[in-house]
């Protein structure tokens, strides 16, 4: 082994020459051997399940005769039938609309707060920044199930501090777990868990801005808030876009929070979100074929949104390496 200092010597020349002499086979075999664990895992646990879902989504079971014996059940090609029934299922449509509404409530509030907190952390006029940063980021360490559980109890009228205070003031408190409000209850749980992570992402981007840019602005008489909105926000815009896209992807997959809250309220149906419906169809109704079609629809919807993400990422990220 050699130290990094030796590495900068002109001895690179013979080594790259010897590399050129290496057989073509070796040049391909070595990287692929080293990539093998990732490729095998990817094929087994990502590619194969996706392929399997697609195959299932085009199949269905036709029951003939009395439908009692195994021989009476036949797997047949269903064409687009599963897709048509998935897309025309009012429960599915309702769950998609619900999740979109949930995202429309959650994402602007979460990213708005994350941006405000990050800018305040970065501002020279704020105090208690270290404590606030750790405290706001802390919920990210709490799994969604546990945070749903904590908030779920805090929502119960017998425990809720808000209800306690309102009752003390003789004001009748609304029950946040009732059907019309439960969407806010779940959005609050996701907000609690997510605002700190997004804040850290934005804050990291802010810290990367060279401070002489601000000095120039300050000499020109810009105030701290002008610097924040006119200089900092435009520079970190890509980070905001990324956090937005990741939030959209996460929103479409919401499952843990409503599933955990269900024992505490009657307001959440088993098809409250698209993924809850997929779970119910696959495991409670044993209809894996229509569950598969619904999964594909959700995945395609996610992909459509994520395509934008890939375009941004690939253009921005890999300028620094030798190609």
């Amino acid at each position: 082994m050699t130290s990094p200092a030796v590495a900068t010597s002109p001895r690179i020349a013979p080594s790259s020459a010897s590399r050129r002499r290496a057989t073509r086979v070796q040049r391909v075999a070595i990287p692929y051997t080293m990539l093998a664990p990732a490729i095998v895992l990817f094929v087994l646990f990502m590619a194969a399940p996706i392929l399997y879902t697609v195959v299932l989504s085009f199949q269905t079971v036709r029951v003939s005769g009395l439908g009692l014996g195994a021989a009476d059940k036949k797997l047949i090609f269903a064409g687009l039938d599963n897709y048509i029934s998935a897309l025309s299922d009012p429960q599915f449509v309702a769950s998609v609309v619900r999740v979109l509404a949930y995202g429309a409530i959650l994402i602007p509030v979460m990213l708005g707060l994350a941006l405000v907190f990050a800018l305040l952390l970065d501002s020279r006029r704020s105090r208690a920044t270290k404590f606030s940063r750790v405290a706001i980021f802390l919920p990210y360490a709490v799994p969604a199930v546990i945070s749903s559980l904590l908030w779920g109890f805090l929502y119960l009228p017998g425990i809720s501090p808000v209800v306690y205070i309102l009752n003390a003031l003789h004001i009748s408190a609304p029950n946040i777990l009732e059907p019309n409000l439960v969407i806010f209850a779940i959005a609050n749980i996701a907000l609690w868990g997510g605002v700190g992570f997004n804040m850290i992402v934005i804050y990291t981007a802010l810290r990367a801005i060279p401070s002489d840019i601000y000095e120039a602005a300050r000499i020109d008489g810009a105030t701290e808030s002008q610097i924040a909105w006119r200089i900092k926000v435009p520079i970190i815009l890509p980070s905001l876009i990324m956090t937005g896209l990741f939030s959209i992807i996460a929103t479409l997959q919401v499952f843990s929070e409503p599933t955990t809250l269900r024992p505490l309220t009657n307001s959440l149906s088993t098809s409250w979100t698209p993924l809850m419906k997929v779970y119910r169809d696959a495991f409670i109704r044993n209809d894996i074929y229509s569950a598969a079609a619904t999964s594909v629809v959700i995945a395609l919807g996610t992909f459509a949104l994520s395509f934008v993400f890939l375009r941004i990422v690939q253009r921005r990220a890999f300028g620094q390496e030798d190609s």
Partner: peptide, 16 residues
Amino acid sequence: LLMGVLVPGVILAIPQ
């Protein structure tokens, strides 16, 4: 591989 970032893990859970 990068496209895998975009595939929601929870959607994979059922076929897995």
